[in-house]
Amino acid sequence: MSYYDLDAILTGAEKIPCTFQLDVPELGYLDNNPGYTLKSGTKVLLPLWLAEMLAIADMGDHQNPDKSFIAFDLPPAVGKDVMAALKADPRSVPIRNQSPNFYNLAKHMMDLAEERELHAVVRKTFLTRAADISLHARKSGGAVSKGEGSNLGIGAAGEEFLRGLDEWERILFRKAHDGARSTKQWIEGIKKRY
């Protein structure tokens, strides 16, 4: 993931539920209270780019080397409910509604927290969905604009599924779709020439 990657930067804006572990006089504005002390134990929603570093930063407290500025919870997008739904059927969850950068977000959270189950579920989700994405990409018609109603054989359920793809899956869909189309064009071109 590049420094300039827009999707990576947008993922950084996802909000993470955090709890401050110390009083900070200057940071009241993070809790909509500028000018007041941010008390230890206050729950605030912080963007990932901020929460990530605050959670792993070393406070320099030698008695508690593991203690950091904040403790954090998993955001709802990769929380228990969504994981339960994905376990039941990965295809029926429009993960885009959870986060447009669902996999990126999950990846960051896995880096921060020991979440073996999250890893297993997300992995299985991608594998199952990728197969379906490739299927739809080959089926949808020659039009460049994807997901039109006139596409053969996709059906309403398929369109619903495609609308729920996150950014990464969309890229996958576009690549699979363009690849299939270019191959077809190339073969037709060969037939014409000879």
């Binding site: 420094y3 900070v24 006089p25 780019w49 901020l50 605050l54 406070m59 500025f69």
Partner: peptide, 25 residues
């Protein structure tokens, strides 16, 4: 020395991260 004043250290870190984020954007 951050370990003598964690609250200020935290403020400075938030401050620094905000600048870094803006630069990246």
């Amino acid at each position: 020395d951050p370990s003598t004043d964690p609250a200020t250290a935290c403020t400075l870190l938030v401050n620094h991260l905000s600048m870094r984020r803006n630069k990246r954007c």
